[in-house]
């Protein structure tokens, strides 16, 4: 059985999403968890582009504009997330998730 390109793109993005999910769940290093979340976000962007390219025709550029805004929000998320990692490191001298188990620094 042959799959259409849209099927292949969706399989690609689901596999990337699951790699990010496994990484975010399995590792206890905060930076690696954040990178797993970033991979999941990228997989979502792949879906937007795949449907824009192969899906039913919509208004021109809908998928592209959605991805541009998603990338902007992801950049903000990465900056704030890594700043939080540095703040947690300053309080606990460690960036293991298990060590950051109190709200008061």
């Amino acid at each position: 059985m042959t799959y259409s390109p849209l099927h292949l793109c969706l399989l690609f993005s689901s596999a990337l999403f699951c790699i990010g999910l496994i990484g975010a769940l399995a590792r206890s290093n905060t930076i690696l968890v954040l990178l797993g979340v970033e991979l999941m976000l990228n997989a979502a962007n792949l879906n937007f582009i795949a449907f824009w390219r192969y899906g039913p025709p919509t208004a021109p550029g809908t998928g592209v504009i959605f991805v541009i805004f998603a990338i902007a929000v992801a950049a903000a998320e990465a900056a704030v997330g890594l700043a939080l990692v540095i703040a947690v490191y300053r309080h606990h001298r460690s960036i293991r998730l298990q060590d950051a188990n109190q709200l008061k620094g």
Partner: peptide, 11 residues
């Protein structure tokens, strides 16, 4: 590279 392949150069 996937975005380039799909034709979304700006992205």
């Amino acid at each position: 590279a996937f975005y380039l392949w799909a034709g979304a150069e700006f992205v």
